[in-house]
Design a protein around this nucleic acid. Structure first.
Length: 216
DNA sequence: TTCCGGTCCA
DNA sequence: TGGACGGGAA
């Protein structure tokens, strides 16, 4: 059994159980970028509130949010938690997007993915998961997003060692899967779904999990 | 109390 | 490698 077929089997099982996920709902690619920072180690619920606050303030517009004072930005994103930290990280990302493409994300999307990824990772506060989320969901580039759920599921299934790092886990998928942004994006979304509904930290629910039959 | 759609720094 | 950052929901 080739790794590609194993992964496709996992994907099919999750897709059959859940259907395609409505992952990363956002009106604009720019909103995805903002949400990607806000959701760092944070439940999506709070991110929704923060995004809603920003929208009320007209600050889902790149130039408007970029012109906000730090305290004002902190106030608006407060419900997402880590608000002082994230206000600074958001600022850093906005500085980058302004300098690199003047907020014309299409320009980034037309460039080499590895180059753009490297630049995103240079931004303080943008780690690999946030960078890949921006690449995949905002720029529609074929980058696979790895998160804690992904690694937990793979290690519990004996597909990767528990201590596999981010890049190794990402390559595990990207080396064998078709570079289709919509597919890679939904694959990640399915894993997150299984991760927080079944493959929990404590109470794993393998008996009812869509991936339960793959356990050896 | 735990956990979340992480990352940086000492 | 461990701690800090933080609100909100279960």
């Amino acid at each position: 059994m080739q790794r590609r077929d194993v992964l496709l089997g996992y994907y099919q099982a999750m897709l059959s159980a859940n259907g395609p996920r409505n992952w990363w709902p956002a009106k604009t690619p720019f909103e995805v970028c903002v949400g990607a920072v806000l959701t760092q180690n944070t439940a999506w619920k709070g991110v929704e509130k923060a995004l809603s606050n920003l929208e009320q303030a007209g600050a889902l517009d790149p130039h408007t949010i970029h012109a906000l004072s730090l305290p004002e930005l902190e106030r608006l994103i407060h419900p997402a938690g880590f608000f002082r930290l994230k206000a600074r990280r958001l600022r850093n990302l906005l500085d980058y997007l302004s300098a690199s493409c003047d907020f014309d994300l299409g320009l980034l999307a037309d460039r080499d993915m590895t180059d753009v990824r490297g630049e995103l990772l240079e931004v303080s506060g943008i780690g690999p998961e946030t960078a890949d989320s921006i690449l995949c969901y905002a720029l529609q580039m074929p980058s696979f997003v790895v998160d804690a759920y992904t690694r937990r599921i793979l290690s519990r299934h004996g597909l990767l060692p528990e201590d596999a790092d981010y890049e190794e886990t990402r390559d595990f998928f990207m080396d064998v899967l078709d570079p289709d942004p919509a597919f890679l994006g939904d694959f990640h979304a399915q894993l997150v779904g299984v991760g927080n509904q079944y493959c929990k930290t404590r109470n794993q629910l393998c008996h009812t999990c869509p991936l339960g039959s793959f356990l050896s």
